[in-house]
């Protein structure tokens, strides 16, 4: 079980540098999975739990905190994920004009584009270890189908997870 204080700083870094609910994913994989504190399987499970849970996108961080650090890890993840967005309150109060400047818009666009590229690569990175005994054809079909349906945006994410679980029960044994 990892130290909640150390986890807090890992989650804080990810929340501060990632934009959006899933922008922290590549950062957390680097700091938790590649360092051996968590596994890709735990990350996938946390993402699935986040899709079933309530609240905004990004609650997967709380599940991941629980997986690697128990209740203390979940609390660390909760506090760390809430702090960076709070800076918007004083920023909007004192520097609203600067937030709407072309320079800040350019920075914002650059960060969003980087996160798009990183998330695409992250999707590929977590697909590969899924097939421990080799990537099967149905893994690829499921991934491409889930990608297309997500882009279309008409199916609830929890249903997609359910379809994946059913496919795993039928084909993964």
């Amino acid at each position: 079980m990892s130290d909640p204080v150390a986890l807090f700083f890992i989650f804080l870094k990810a929340a501060a540098l990632g934009m959006g609910g899933y922008g922290s994913l590549p950062l957390l994989r680097e700091d938790l999975v590649l360092t051996g504190l968590a596994t890709d399987e735990q990350l996938i499970q946390a993402l699935a739990v986040g899709r079933f849970s309530t609240g905004p996108n990004g609650t997967y961080i709380l599940s991941l905190g629980y997986f690697v650090g128990g209740i203390g890890g979940a609390i660390a993840a909760l506090i760390a994920s809430c702090l960076p967005p709070l800076v918007m309150v004083p920023l909007v109060a004192v520097a609203r004009g600067r937030l709407l400047s072309p320079g800040f818009a350019g920075f914002n666009r650059g960060v969003l584009l980087a996160i798009s590229g990183l998330l695409l690569a992250f999707g590929l990175a977590i697909l590969v270890p899924t097939g421990r005994s080799g990537l099967a054809w149905w893994h690829i079909v499921l991934a491409l189908g889930a990608m297309a349906v997500t882009v279309q945006g008409r199916v609830h994410p929890a249903i997609l997870i359910g379809v994946g679980a059913a496919a795993g029960l039928l084909l993964g044994r």
Binding site: G20, I44, L112, G123, I126, M147, A148, G153, A165
Partner: peptide, 20 residues
């Protein structure tokens, strides 16, 4: 079941990248 959830999660993440 999780063997099927993994690829779906990967695809959903890539889909979010496309949306973004």
């Amino acid at each position: 079941a999780l063997a099927g959830v993994g690829p779906v999660t990967a695809g959903m993440t890539a889909g979010l990248a496309v949306i973004s």
